[in-house]
Amino acid sequence: MPAMTRTATLKTEASNSLYRRKVKNKYVLFFMALPFLVLTFVFSYLPLHGWLYAFYNFRPGIPLSQTEFVGWKWFQSIAANPTQTGEVLRVLYNTVGISTMNILVSVLPVAFAIFLVEIRTEWFKKSVQVLTTIPNFISWVLVFSVAFNMFSVDSGMVNRVLMQLGLVDRGINFLATDSHIWLKMCLWNIWKTLGWSSIMYLAAIAGIDQELYEAAKVDGAGRYKMMWHITVPGILPTFFVILLLSIANFINNGFDQFYVFQNPVNRNHIEVLDLYVYNIGMVGSNFSFATAVSMLKSLISVFLLFVANGLSKLIRGESIV
């Protein structure tokens, strides 16, 4: 008996001292995390001070204290100056158009997953999954290199094959034209991400209760019926989350893809917000105006995030952030 009590006291003492140490250590833990918090502050929060530059007439090389304060001039110029308004509208149009197309084709990975599980040959299924995921892991520069080597006028594979087959006399210029740019960007995006995006849905399908299929089979449901009434509803929640996330990212359609594919010919239709900001800021050296546009974009994107989150709460009863 005494032995047991002693163990008990020892235990409480141990956990008491552990508790005391934990209280004492709460700052130790914080200071251990501090270097990482500082890094996050420097690279994610500190850039916010750059928004100040939108209210000045900033030229690189001259310190901010010696530049002229212009107030809301750059923001007003977006609305007041017709050429500027036209430019911004054109860029917004491109951004919205390309994002809309990408949202429309986001059902493709769902279909890809649904039809892939219908394939019963395991090795074939596995190989398709592995090989179609590869393009997702290469950079947009490399995608451009692929595009260049496949589609360029004089040395592209596609043009060579077409000419050898006698289907065309001269190479078709796929890259340096202004036609169907949104469609082409959308197709490259599908090529790069279709296999990868479907992985999430394949996992969702694997999580569907197999008894549902058994029960449906007993009730006489055929293959299509089961696909439509069991698989599709089973992955709809996953699709919905992805859809909401893409609404939240509606105006962030990326920089790399459009940067590598842009050329003087297709600029009118390829310039999305991020690329436009780069072109006027880094190439055109109009830092302050670029910052103003950049700032508006950040604010709209936070607004869209709240919209998507609100929608999610309304429909699914839980938030996405």
């Binding site: 918090l37 996050t40 420097v42 850039p47 928004w51 900001v277 800021g281 910052t291 950049s294 950040s298």
Partner: peptide
């Protein structure tokens, strides 16, 4: 949260460049 929020928000590429 201080860290997680940065996943959803950034100041924009030009302010980042200036920093």
């Amino acid at each position: 949260r201080f860290i997680i929020i940065t996943m959803y928000f950034n100041a924009g590429i030009i302010p980042w460049y200036i920093t």
